[in-house]
Design a protein around this nucleic acid. Sequence first.
RNA 1: GCGAGAGUGGUGAAAUUGGUAGACACGCCAGAUUUAGGAUCUGGUGCCGAAAGGCGUAAGGGUUCGAGUCCCUUCUCUCGCACCA
Length: 828
Amino acid sequence: MPRMKKYPFREIEPKWQRYWEENRTFRAVEDASVPPEKRRYVLDMFPYPSAAGLHVGHPEGYTATDIYCRYLRMNGYNVLHPMGFDSFGLPAENYAVQTGTHPKATTEANIDRFREQIKSLGFSYDWDREVSTHRADYYKWTQWIFLKLWERDLAYVAEIPMWYCEALGTVLANEEVIATPEGPRSERGNHPVERRPLRQWMLKITEYADRLLEGLEDLDWPESIKAMQRNWIGRSEGANVTFPLADDAAERAAAAGLGEDERHIEVYTTRPDTLFGATYMVMAPEHAMVAALTTPEQANAVRGYVDATKLKSDLERTELSKEKTGVFTGSYAINPVNGAQIPIWISDYILASYGTGAIMAVPGHDERDWDFATAFDLPIVKVVARPDEDDPQAPLAAATPEYGVAVNSGQFDGKPTEQVKSEIIDWLESHGHGSRAVNYKLRDWIFSRQRYWGEPIPLVECDGEYYPIPEDQLPLTLPEVESYKPTGTGESPLAAVTEWVECDCPDGSGRRGRRETNTMPQWAGSCWYYLRYLDPANDRAFADREKIEYWMPVDLYVGGAEHAVLHLLYARFWHKVLYDIGVVNTDEPFLRLVNQGMILGENGVKMSKSLGNVINPDDIVSEYGADSMRVYEMFMGPLQQEKPWSTQGLTGVHRFLDRVWRLTERPLDETPADEELRRVLHKSIRKVGHDTGKLAFNTAISQMMILVNELYKHDGRPREVWEPLVRMLSPYAPHLAEELWEMMGNRSPVSLGAWPEFDEELTRDDQKEVVLQVNGKIRARLTVDAGTDRETLQRMAMEHERIAELTAGKQVVKVIAVPDKLVNVVVK
RNA sequence: GCGAGAGUGGUGAAAUUGGUAGACACGCCAGAUUUAGGAUCUGGUGCCGAAAGGCGUAAGGGUUCGAGUCCCUUCUCUCGCACCA
């Protein structure tokens, strides 16, 4: 080995990891003497323990929060910083289907590996609080929360069309279905799939839509994430409008068994102001009234279209470039504002799940309706003119969705359409043709999975009614099954465990009942894990109220942007429900959210096995050490930014730590440091502290590098500089710092020590370089005493040889002097 | 199409309120040192130019004594949503 003395991270790192563990150095205790403003809850998104182990993206966020927590502790904060595992989920179940291995065995082996990998990076978690969502003492409370939702009528059963694959005998998620020329197929095996209505548990997240929207206002989250959530919730305001059926259509509906109050079509529109321009209607092919409204002549065409739609995936249906398709039902409706008879069509561009599943089409002022009307030669009426238009009746060349001035709209003509919008709603309401309405893109949450490896839903069905399993009988544990394979009926493998499914009805009536065999989705456990960390061993409540009060809400939550919508929306929803039933103290769980940017492969593209550019953290830790890994990942660039991995960059950081280590070859000396070194030190303490506090770790590290470089320029190793350096380094490279600290003769860990203080006086330079500009161009530089006043600076500039030369014979228009910065002489 | 964000050396990136662009690091070049080889140390390194000097923060325009930073226009890229009536 060529190197003279190598920084022995292989000995140091395990040594201190053992020390922290044995001494439970980072245990968080609810110490009442710490005032609330000195408490912080810093949370990482817990990982799914996959078989592949940790990848380099995990340590990025974890290192960031770890540095921040260590910094807070050194500044006198009581910090809660826990870690756990999101351990229910599909990969373990798929593996079980293939190999017969119990998902629990796979999962727990993976957890052990993850825990070991995480510990090898020296994070300051309070491991006494570790949770795993698949453990019965955890999911007992997931089930408990589900029952609270159920009690509040926020959980219900519905028949929902799900992708079902006959050959695989199982239900598939949208992303497991691919579009092929032969129709939708399963991603696995390429078998045909179809939509089948299946019984599902649903959660009424839509009931919380407005609060989820409003709650975003005060959160310190990235604007992009808030925008995504707003978009996902998709609130819009408009009106529901009732279109009566024309006479023969009404007769047809009556013949099909529809009551008098059902013989009309209700639509939702955000543009009631364009109602006079509605020249036809379109219903989703799945609309309940399609069959009743179809005339015999159109029956074949309609049936064919409806069947074809069933085979289309959502992706195909929403393909924008696609030509509009549709079929006329043969029936007509009446436009309530002008009595016009308008045809009723069906088309797959109308979604059954949004609004009422039917629309009034206004081709003049809606691009989609324009396309459809053009394709099928349907009439187009202009009802909105531009305010500046010379001829308001001039024909339209394309749909104009903008607001303007009403035309061809009876008594509303000439009015601004924004105003008409509200007036028409009033008119509709007073004439019984409609009412104001709000709609959301957000759908209720399909909460059941036809799978084994998830939380059992704690309900029993007796004679068609559901009864909750009493709280004192929770958890309802997963039974052992003989096979993890799908049942072939679309039910979960639990359905095959007769002795588990069949049970007494919890109502005590002595009737027999059947347990719910659907399980909860993976999101369930991650909806509330941050609460369980507060009190992980509690068997009387999900967490003690005082502990909730002590720590909540989460001050900082760090994780990947891939959870921007679903996890964060679901967790917020559950939290609000828990708030409503009075068991948590805040309306929102996560005050501040930061997304770490993805780490790309060395070639600048996403890491993936197939590209062969995956970096394994274990290799980095064994070759360069955990401290190098930590400092490098933070030095790469801003936390929030996407950035490519560079092994050469890593060696640069490793070299820096090595340089720190080699300073110990110099004897520690008690003599005061040079003035110059001391100034760099105090500036460094200020900058490193400031930057660490705002998560700007890259610049904090560069400042420590500057300090170390400065130290090398001087002789000796003054304690006055060395001690604060080791303290500052300790959140970043904690193993190295602990070792250096111990070498200085300290007995207690630097991790529990104090952050160094700086002397304001020493952070200010007494000399400043001032630039002299002529017309904004730098022409000379001067070193002056700090704080030299404007007049003096101006005089010095004008007297300067070079400036005098350049301004000679010219008229000086003005001289700007900024103390400690510059003098700008403006000449003509 | 809509929404959010970003464009700075060969590379990752710095740059309180508009006030010395490129800190720190990688790479590269030169040198030193060593039982030589992925170590360490010193110096150099935005571009053009021999130099003086000029030019430089995606492009163009504007405000200003002064713009990477503020305003307008355009282009490119990334991410998210995408027939939501």
